[in-house]
Design a protein around this nucleic acid. Structure first.
Lengths: 368, 368
DNA sequence: TCGACGGCTGTAAACGGTTACATCACGGTT
DNA sequence: AACCGTGATGTAACCGTTTACAGCCGTCGA
């Protein structure tokens, strides 16, 4: 169970001062020192000064682990992600970090949980080290792994992909966003709209596909397997899909790609096939990663406020304990919106995106 | 010192089973249970089975905090970053995460340390919770804050910006990389090369500036304040600098921008000023963020293997304890290389970048 | 028959804090 | 003078583990 590579004890250098050292040096009991460091009002002014002075001389600071053991508070939130690649996950983390910091919490991060077993391991190894956990595992059966864990420790599941009773959840409005995008394309006159899927078992991808199909049907267009290409959320897989599409005789006039990374690959693939976007084919993506504004042409996509996803997760976690009845679980849906740029052939909306900071400027401002 | 918003104890739901519960239920002592969970060879086959069974029935897993307290090992590494924005930092984290996971470590992350005091606070609050720390604080006097801390706990400082004795360090070859880029521009025939700086106190920016000046002098060109524009590493500040440059009568023929984010802004600014890149002005950046390949024209830049920076940091941390003499501190320099694309006017090198995966494919592709 | 030994298991002392409760000094009531 | 409340401090139990050490029991060699 133990891992072979471990660090030695702290004791290698000069040993860390403990509460006892401070107490001895200051001529008080350890309870008094503890009280000083907990801002207890019970300590006299003079004693506080004395203890603080001795403590800073000895370079003392209360040991967090010992504190946690007795208080059963860690001031840390666990974050379990499938991996660390791509802007999407770093945006989620940024949101989580932002909210956590506001409440004085650290983040205990662990990524790359390929299967359900790895996830369980990670959950267990964080056991007792955190006050709550944010779990995102779009590829595996997360609810299963989380079950039996959420009783001890508040958990919020990101994108659970179904009904979950055991814990709070936040889902991205994948189907709704995808439908909206398809309606937009239909509105522009497209009748043959292809879709490039993500990995087989990925829930986001699946939901986006469902939304795509639903909107087609709504518009009186029949979904067809011919129009649904397999991808895996990576840029190269988008490139391949584009090559495949370009070579068809009954080419679709638009392609909706299940995420922006693949959409970037699709743009390259169409370019290399000698097709022009959006004239020969409209291309749209999903996620609105930062890069989407810089492709040529700029990518029309479904905007997801990714960092908000992280923020909400933390809020839910913290609210879980404050609430009167922690047994009623919250289930949120994170709405999406359309980021219309030129890759779909429609005129970008005014004041869109990065262009915003180029207008109305007098002073240097920060990017939002 | 305590933060007002805290989570409740774990005990809200069903209380977590402890080692004592398992011991009682299994009819053995807590020592035996402990031995089972530490894979001790001293326990009989039958007892192991029994204990494991009872444990899984009770949903028991050893409490990490209690373990840490007695073993003084946390299996966690602290990560202190200035903030979470941008690809640069998320790449660093990815590298750290990668290496940490390989060695069975978690990451305790905390970001946004504006000043030296905030940094000290963060260091302290991680005190005892981690086996080592990676600290990156390009804007503040990190060595100062870290001093007196590195004695207890191994610390590696990223980009210290000077000689540091107290702890291991890894620096990016900022000056060298900047010089190389300037030499490249000079080699293309440029004589008037402007520079857009980062924030005043930022060490990376300062070192890149020094490298720029040194290379100019080497080439027999005099550095001039007129050619050095102030930016703050954000895209808008690059945009402004570009507007400023475009409007000059004795316009430089090339501009070297202290980071890629600003360079993206510079490209927009020049475009909006009616100048064409690289014909009217060559533009180059620093960092080689993912987006650099997708700007138009694709950005020539100094490539930094950012995630390697994080990986090396972890290696150093772990090696510190294995080494015979932990008192000798390591100081590494992370080399850079040129990523030549078209924004500088020279022909991109063969097999460059993303294009790589388009080659050696069965599918018709290549553009060059 | 006895002692030594080896394989398992239990007892209890840490680890570094927090906190309920006991204690104590002191000034003000009665 | 006895009593009491109050504010400052000390004592000790406790949090959930690990691990040194002691103990027990059966086996084996002398």
């Amino acid at each position: 169970m133990r891992h072979p590579h471990t660090l030695g004890t702290h004791g290698k250098g000069s040993p860390v001062a403990t509460i006892r050292d401070v107490a001895r040096e200051a001529g008080v009991s350890i309870a008094t020192v503890s009280r000083v460091f907990n801002d207890s009002s019970l300590v006299s002014e003079a004693t506080v000064r004395n203890v603080r002075e001795v403590a800073s001389k000895l370079n003392y600071w209360p040991n967090g682990v010992a504190r946690s053991l007795i208080t059963s508070r860690t001031h840390a939130l666990g974050v379990l992600l499938p991996d660390m690649y791509g802007e999407f996950f770093s945006d989620v983390i940024r949101g989580i970090d932002l909210a956590a910091r506001q409440h004085g919490f650290h983040l205990l991060v662990s990524s790359s949980h390929a299967d359900s077993e790895a996830l369980t391991d990670a959950l267990r190894s964080m056991s007792g080290r955190v006050d709550g956990m944010v779990v995102m595992a779009p590829d595996v059966d997360a609810p299963e792994a989380v079950r039996g864990f959420a009783v001890h420790c508040p958990v919020v599941l990101l994108n659970p992909g179904g009904e979950v009773e055991q814990c709070d959840t936040i889902a991205i409005a994948n189907a709704e966003g995808a439908s909206e995008m398809v309606r937009h394309l239909v509105g522009l006159g497209h009748q043959r709209i292809a879709f490039v899927r993500g990995p087989q078992k990925n829930l986001d991808s699946e939901q986006r596909l469902q939304g795509y199909r639903a909107a087609l049907r709504e518009a009186g267009l029949a979904p067809s397997p011919d129009l649904e290409l397999q991808g895996d959320f990576t840029e190269p897989s988008g490139y391949e899909a584009a090559i495949e599409l370009a070579r068809r005789k009954d080419r679709p006039t638009a392609v909706f790609v299940a995420n922006d990374h693949m959409a970037v690959g699709v743009l390259s693939g169409l370019l290399d096939s000698g097709l022009s976007v959006p004239n020969d084919m409209a291309v749209t993506g999903f996620d609105d990663i930062a890069m989407a504004r810089y492709t040529s042409p700029p990518l029309t996509t479904v905007r997801v406020n990714t960092s908000l996803l992280g923020e909400r997760a933390v809020e839910l976690l913290l609210r879980a304990r404050r609430s009167a009845n922690p047994d009623v679980k919250q289930h949120e849906l994170l709405p999406t919106s359309l980021a219309v740029r030129s890759s779909c052939g429609s005129r970008p909306r005014r004041g869109e995106d990065a262009l915003r900071w180029r207008k109305n400027r007098t002073i240097p401002a920060s990017i939002d």
